[in-house]
């Protein structure tokens, strides 16, 4: 059984059909790429997968379970985590606190435990430990006490991934993780994404413009154009497909 299976997914905004008959099948442990020209509907699909938008039709099966209609935070509990195209961190919280928010649903204690601080302190220490482990993977442990908004841009992107992973997801959605990065940073990011998949046993679906990154790490691709699937398959096949070249470069 595939980890994620999306069937005939579609959404209309008024008269506009933003996504139509979208199908995708992602196996567990896969590194999957979703590409397409600007305005093809890539982020809309992320928003559909994470419950921000309710699809007009179709189904989304995560581990065989239909998650359509669930609220955003419930879908997070089901095991989908995401990052955002325009970084969305908790800017006035520290790097450590950002990751601890990600751990929120896994390390629980009652309100009274919080008020009397016991055994909340113990749980908090466990959370801190787990958060630091995650931050170490991203080389952010040194900056744990910095305010998230004071991190350099590239580090902020990493922190967003770290926070998403803290929710212990089965599927990680990365929305243009390399946007605004220079070639060196992009290469470093590719290594990190590979490492993340190994360490956290997570399946990754990423949206990307950077063809180098896409062909470098993705095992399978779906190309989207005007809200519909143009083609799907192995990167080398897909990227040489004349239809894809036309969609990107025009006639």
């Amino acid at each position: 059984m595939a980890l994620l299976e999306v069937k005939n997914l579609g959404i209309s905004f008024g008269g506009l059909r933003a996504v139509d008959d979208f199908n995708i099948r992602i196996e567990e442990g896969q590194l999957y790429g979703l590409i397409g020209p600007n305005g093809a509907g890539k982020t809309t699909i992320f928003n559909l997968l994470t419950g921000v938008y309710k699809p007009t039709d179709g189904s989304i099966l995560l581990d065989g379970k239909n998650i359509v209609g669930k609220s955003i935070h419930k879908i997070s509990h089901e095991g989908i985590a995401r990052t955002f195209q325009n970084i969305r961190l908790f800017g006035k919280m520290t790097v450590l606190e950002n990751v601890k928010v990600g751990l929120h649903s896994q390390y629980k204690y009652s309100l009274f435990a919080g008020i009397f601080q016991y055994p909340a302190i113990k749980k908090e220490a466990q959370m801190t430990e787990r958060a630091m482990e995650i931050l170490e993977v991203f080389g952010l442990a040194e900056d744990a006490e910095l305010l998230a908004s004071n991190l350099p841009y590239g580090q902020q992107r990493k922190l967003e991934i770290a926070r998403a992973l803290a929710t212990n997801p089965k599927l990680l959605l990365l929305d243009e993780p390399a946007a605004g990065m220079n070639p060196n940073e992009t290469k470093e990011l590719m290594d990190t994404i590979r490492l993340v998949r190994e360490k956290f046993h997570v399946t990754v679906l990423l949206i990307e413009h950077d063809m180098k990154l896409v062909s470098g790490i993705c095992e399978e691709l779906t190309v989207l154009n005007f809200g519909t699937v143009l083609t799907q398959g192995k990167p080398e096949d897909v990227l040489n497909d004349p239809k894809v070249i036309t969609a990107y470069l025009g006639e």
Binding site: V52, H104, K108, Y109, T167
Partner: peptide, 27 residues
């Protein structure tokens, strides 16, 4: 103490970015 607990942290996360907070599993 509430502020410094996971409850307070969740509240502050909602303030800083409610879209991200929700996507991170906070109701």
């Amino acid at each position: 103490n509430i502020i410094n607990s996971r409850y307070g942290r969740a509240i502050t996360a909602v303030r800083d970015n409610y879209i991200a907070a929700e996507a991170t599993g906070i109701c």
